[in-house]
Computed example of a mutant assay.
Amino acid sequence: MKLFKYISLLLVAAVTSCSTDSEDLKPVNETEGLIKIQTIENETHEAELYSESGGLQTGYNKMVLRLMDKSTKEFVQDADIEWNPMMHMETKQHSAPKSEVLKIPGTNTLFEGYIVFQMPENEIEFWRLTLNYSLDGNDYSMGDKISVPASEKRRVAVFLGTDDVKYILALVEPTTPKIATNDISAALFRMENMQSFPVVNNYRILIDPRMPGMDNHSSPNNVPLTQSGAGELYEGKLNLTMSGYWKINLQVENPEGEVMKGEKVEGTNEASSIFFELEF
């Protein structure tokens, strides 16, 4: 009887162990919570582009991608990837501010980065994304048109500063604003040429949120956006006291405190010439 009980316990332990091992081997869906934007391909590989919304829009866009080998149907785990967005206009072409494409820590196949599309597509002009990548000592390239419609609210400001430099200022957060003191972040770039848009460091971005539909009232305790280090986003605090449409008036100052662009909201001036928009 004791032997039977002992064997039964061993069988239970074995079944439990097999069940646990089976669960441990269950495939992980690394793109869970992401929606595919589109696939770009060449003769050897497919690149899947993802975002949280499943689309792109004018302004700051964080994207995730992964590469699949067409012959093995397996996703690539290690590659050096660069991307280059290009706006094809009627008379000229230009690129856009963009980050490096880096492997996402803790994942096997996912890479991420951001692109700031400073203008939307239209019936004639369009964006094309080219991916250049190195894999197992070989170099590859692929590219295709991508859809970049205008955002519903203004999320990017392109302007010429008082120093005759063209700047691109893009809202990053909040994407889901609330009645509270929100963390606000933005990315600031300068146009070096049609292909190069380096990050601008050590500036300051003043914010004055207003509700045009509510007598243009503002809110207290807003904190200007500053960097914690070179190459980082600009971060501050944005106090939204009620739901509705807000215009976030902006002023951009250089390290000497000189205003490169933007005006104070005071007297008869009800808005700055550069601003973001939020509505919730």
Rank of each mutant, 00 (worst) to 15 (best):
V165L: 13
P177C: 06
S99V: 12
F111S: 03
Y167K: 09
D69M: 05
I81S: 01
M142A: 06
E121G: 05
D80T: 03
T162W: 07
S151W: 05
L169W: 12
W127N: 03
G106R: 02
E123H: 06
G137M: 10
E74V: 06
M68P: 00
D136R: 14
T107P: 07
L110Q: 02
H88V: 06
Q93A: 10
D163Y: 10
L129S: 04
K98N: 10
E90N: 10
K92C: 11
G143D: 06
A187W: 06
P120F: 15
E90P: 00
M86P: 00
L110S: 07
T91F: 15
L67S: 02
R155T: 14
P97Y: 07
A96N: 05
I124K: 08
N122K: 02
P177H: 08
F75M: 03
K103E: 07
A186R: 01
M86A: 03
M119D: 00
P120M: 14
L65P: 00
G137I: 06
D78P: 12
G137W: 08
S95P: 13
T107Q: 07
V156Y: 01
E112T: 15
E125C: 12
K145M: 15
L169D: 05
L188T: 02
V148T: 06
V76Q: 07
M63R: 02
G143N: 11
I81T: 02
L65K: 04
A180E: 14
T181P: 00
H94L: 11
A186W: 08
L102F: 03
S99Q: 06
V116D: 00
L129E: 11
Y114S: 11
L160E: 08
F189R: 00
D144I: 09
A170N: 03
M89W: 10
R154S: 08
K178T: 15
T175L: 14
L110I: 01
M89V: 03
D144E: 11
N138Q: 11
A150H: 03
I146M: 15
T109V: 09
P97C: 11
V158E: 04
